[in-house]
């Protein structure tokens, strides 16, 4: 029973990690008033960048490649949606579709139809001294690849930045009322471009996580909707970094539970289990307190943005 519980918790953390990275990026972006529907594209680009980087020069280059590819994709989104003021929803969708197609094509060009198979070096788990020897929890939470720890440390860092620093205040104000920020002498366009870049960096890391700490290869479309789930996770976490981390873990947990239920050989149709994480998200979304609402200026366009 203990091994099964450990297996469940470890699976929860593994499933939650890429989701947490992407959702934190998306959450920071939305806090600045930008809804980045290009997140799915950012993740798949990150996965591809990580595969190329790792195949060329090991896992460190893989992480860098993933982050860089994510950054490039989000910059494309940023240039159009923020600088040129195109509609964020449409631009984000276009960026996602474009990145999904482009990574498939580039993958074929780079590695041929045989692909990289399972030859990419992967990140070994990095057990933390002492903590990893805690029974049950230790091996699940403290014996994970480095990207997992980055996700966990990032949540409090983002919280501190948003709520304890002056830049964080301007960042949040941009999401609520960019006009007010501008009249106070701030630069909302710069803030939003920065926020979008950060979301790209983290989305890229989420993709790198799929390749480097999970599967050990690239597969077309392996982001499998995580970018869209991230947008739901942000709402579920009430636009607060620690809430987002908790929501990612909840989603990871219900996915892990789903995997275990399916594997436990029951007569219930598997589609019921597949729907489980989404049903759980709906329940939480509708039952929660109406605390933090979405940033007021979310998805809006900046007028006279070049001022």
């Amino acid at each position: 029973m203990e091994t099964l519980l450990t297996a469940f918790l470890a699976s929860t953390v593994r499933t939650a990690t890429p989701l947490a990275l992407a959702s934190l990026g998306e959450g920071m972006c939305e806090r600045a008033g930008v809804i980045n529907l290009g997140m799915e594209g950012t993740i798949i680009a990150g996965a591809f960048g990580a595969a190329v980087g790792a195949a060329a020069g090991g896992t460190v280059l893989g992480i860098a490649g993933g982050a860089l590819a994510g950054l490039v994709v989000s910059c494309v989104f940023g240039i159009f949606a923020i600088w040129l003021r195109t509609d964020q929803i449409i631009t984000g969708t276009a960026v996602t579709l474009g990145a999904l197609g482009l990574t498939s094509a580039l993958y074929r060009v780079t590695f041929g139809t045989q692909g990289v198979a399972l030859s990419i070096p992967t990140l070994a788990p990095l057990p933390l001294p002492l903590l990893s020897s805690i029974p049950v929890l230790g091996s699940a939470f403290f014996s994970q690849p480095v990207l997992t720890y980055i996700a966990f440390v990032l949540a409090p860092v983002c919280s501190w930045f948003l709520f304890r620093t002056r830049t964080g205040l301007i960042w949040r104000a941009t999401g609520e009322s960019p006009e007010a920020v501008r009249s106070a002498g701030g630069r909302p366009v710069q803030v939003q471009l920065l926020a979008t870049s950060l979301s790209g960096l983290l989305g890229g890391l989420a993709g790198a996580c799929l390749v480097l700490s999970q599967v050990g290869t690239f597969a077309d479309g392996m982001s499998a909707g995580r970018g869209f789930i991230a947008i739901a996770v942000v709402a579920l976490g009430r636009w607060h970094p620690s809430g987002i981390l908790a929501a990612s873990l909840l989603f990871g947990g219900s996915s892990a539970l789903q995997y275990l239920f399916q594997a436990a050989a029951t007569a219930i149709p598997y589609q019921v289990f597949l729907a489980l994480p989404y049903m759980m998200a709906l329940v939480v979304l509708t039952s929660g307190r109406r605390g933090h609402a979405a940033p007021a200026a979310l998805g809006g366009k900046l007028e006279n943005s070049l001022s």
């Binding site: 297996a7 699976s11 593994r14 499933t15 890429p18 799929l210 999970q214 599967v215 290869t217 597969a219 392996m222 499998a224 996915s255 892990a256 995997y259 275990l260 399916q262 594997a263």
Partner: peptide, 11 residues
């Protein structure tokens, strides 16, 4: 979704 398939195999 190779990542989910891996988790399901582990389960």
């Amino acid at each position: 979704d190779a990542s989910a398939a891996k988790e399901q195999a582990l389960a």
